[in-house]
Structures are given as C-alpha cells and as structure tokens.
Design a binder for these strands. Structure first.
Lengths: 194, 194
DNA sequence: CTCGTTCAGTACCGATCGGTACAGAACTAG
DNA sequence: CTAGTTCTGTACCGATCGGTACTGAACGAG
C-alpha cells in the first residue's frame, strides 16, 4: 500500500469555512469561486477532496448538524418540555449568532431552480429527520408519563419544528434574540404538561 | 402625444406567470430563460416592460401581496383573535396550494449571494411591513378592549408572524394542510383573549 | 535511487448567466 | 402619404457558471 503526497490542509477545518459561506449565501447563491476563496484551496483540490458542489453541500450539512450542540443538548434533557425549550432557546442563539443569521437547513435550499432539486430534497429530508427524532422523543415522554396520554406526539413535534423554522426566518429578517425569546415564551405556553 | 406600437400582451397576466416561476424556484434559482419561456415573451420585451430581473421580482412581490386575499380578509376581521386565525388558516391554504409549496416572501430570497443582496433586503422589508401591520392591528385591539392591556402587541405580532413563516417552511418540507391545521390549533391556544 | 500514487496549481472547457444593439413591424398624429 | 414613437424578435455581448486535463511536486515502498 503506497500512500502518495499528503494533503496540505485539514478537511474539517476547510469544511467549516465552506459552511460559513453556504450559511450566509445559501446553496444557489454560492459560487465555486466563493468557496475556493474562503477555503483557501484551488478548485481541483476541492473536487478531489469533497466531490463536487452538491456533495460538498451535503458534507457541510453533516458538519452543521455535528456542530449544532444545542440540538444534542436538547435531546439529553430529562423531560419533553425541557427538550423543546432547550431546542428553541438554543436555536435563537444559533440563528442570531455571528456566523450569520438563520439556519442552514432552512434557508440553505428552500426553493431552487431545475438543476438543484436534489439539494432541496436533501435539506427537506434532514428537516424531516429532525422532526422524526423529536416525535420519537415525545412518544417516549408519553410512555414515561412525562406527557399526557391525549397529546399526539407527531402533532407536537410538528408544532415545535414549526416554531424552530419560524425563528430561523425571523432571524433572517433581523429579529434580535430578546424579541425571539419572548416569542418562545408565548410558544411554550401552549406546551402540554408541567 | 404619439403612441406607437401597442404591446401585444397583458402586463398583469404575464406577471402572474412570472410569479409562478419565482414561487417555485426562488429568485436566484430562476433564470431569465425560465421567465421568458413561461411568460411567452422575448427577453427585450421583458426588459422594456418590467425593467430587469430585480425590478420584475419587486413587481411580482407587489402582485403577490395583491393576490393574497387571505391577508386582506384577515385584516377585515372584527377581533384580534379572528385576524390571527384567518391569517394563519389562510396561509395554510396558500402555502399548500397548487402554485407550489411555501410562501414567496419567505423562500423567494431568504439567503442570497453577493449580487442579490438588494433582493433579499426587499423581501425582508416586506416581511417587516406585514409584522408592523399586524402589530398596529393588535394595538388597536388593545385600545378597543379586545385584547388585555398587559399583552405586548409587538411581541404578539412577532409570534403570529413566526408561526406564519414556520407554516411556510413546513409546507416546503411537504407538510399537508391537515397536519398544519393541527399545528395552528396548538399555536392559537396561547393567543390571549377569547 | 526509481517507481507508483496522490496531491498542488495553471489554464482551460462548453454552457449558461443577466443584459443589450439592432433592424423591422405596428401603431398615431399630422 | 410621411414622420415619430414604441413594441417585436434575432442575434449577440462580456462575464461567470460548474467542472476538468494536464503538468509538476511531494510522499512511501522497494
């Protein structure tokens, strides 16, 4: 097994730089020249390391979920209520932070032209996965008696995700974290259980 | 005053066709060739009639607001609660309708590349205008005793808009009108007053 | 050292992007 | 009729799009 010349940059570190560009500009708003400039590598190096623009975006979405610590923290909470609250409060911090407003899974590829349909579908699939995970967490809460038996876990998960995405859009409109915090206060008042 | 050759197409009717393209594909996902093909006019005709792509998108946003009858209907409601409920239920119908999923003001230009910053800003400004109008409606409701004096009209407007935009994103994820209806049931439970 | 492999950057590919010059056609005013 | 104006489509503009051949350079194995 021969190894060849070693790569002169760190894959994950440059991926983070690509993440920031996609975050600010969305998938279709980002040109390869934007990426290579921000990542500090040449175009063929990008293709050799990550595939192509579409594959790079997929890896960026993976990286995005890995680094979204508030999501992991939310699922570690003991109750359904604190799971939802941690998720939404953390989303406020993430969407109004310094990496640019909004949430990559929401505005990264909400609507796309003909060529980029697969990217839009993948972003939607990840949103579905998040909603499914939340629904399963709420179903567990119901089994544990943490949530009343008459609440529908799927409906509740859809509502929490709806607030999540609403926060992301409001952040893109320039809403501040205090304003959004009061909106989450309102949203959590309808959450069942203690 | 001389008049010259008359235009061979109806401005508003072709604007509706452009609206449907932008709705499906967003601003940056839409190419001029997509527009001219759907509108059935040549490229110079488009520029003479509407300016350029950016100006056309602005006129499309105007047209979009004009044709959003559920918004006008909402503001004609007698109470703050029915205003919010009409707006959100109507949004469900509009975002899951046949013109493609989602809301043009949300996904039309949420995140854009360097050139299209003005378009993103304009979409955000229209969202702000909608929130302001809702806040003023709620302030009026408070003066009329329709809303309790201790509720903040701005916070409530922001929350309703947040749900509005959340519906739009969920619709882009493929959520159905029944699912979203139950989410609005939950969202309205936290609305103050009767 | 040589050889095979993998990375690096330059320079380029066809296609498409948004936008326009231009010439002819269709109209009104006189 | 002519003159002036405005719309029409063809054909084209430079710039940029995503993606790739190709030539060296930097490594480990032998």
């Amino acid at each position: 097994m021969t190894t060849g010349r070693p790569r002169a940059f760190d894959l994950d570190e440059r991926l983070d730089r690509a993440l920031r560009v996609f975050w600010r500009q969305g998938y279709e708003g980002t040109a390869l020249s934007d990426l290579t400039e921000a990542m500090g590598i040449s175009r063929p190096s990008l293709y050799a390391a990550y595939g192509n623009k579409e594959a790079l975006f997929g890896k960026v979405l993976d990286r995005y979920m890995e680094t979204a610590v508030h999501v992991r923290e939310a699922f570690r909470q003991p109750t359904a209520r604190s799971t939802a609250e941690t998720l939404l409060r953390g989303t406020i911090a993430a969407t109004t932070g310094e990496d640019g407003p909004g949430c990559l899974m929401v505005h990264g590829a909400l609507a796309t032209g003909g060529q980029s349909g697969a990217v839009r579908a993948e972003a939607a699939a990840r949103r579905h996965a998040a909603e499914d995970a939340l629904r399963e967490r709420f179903e567990r809460a119901r089994r544990e008696g943490d949530l009343p038996a008459d609440v529908d876990a799927g409906d509740l998960a859809r509502y929490v995700c709806l607030v999540w995405y609403g926060i992301a859009v409001q952040a893109c409109s320039g809403a501040g974290s205090e304003d959004l915090g009061r909106a989450v206060d309102l949203a959590m008042r309808t959450f069942p259980g203690g």
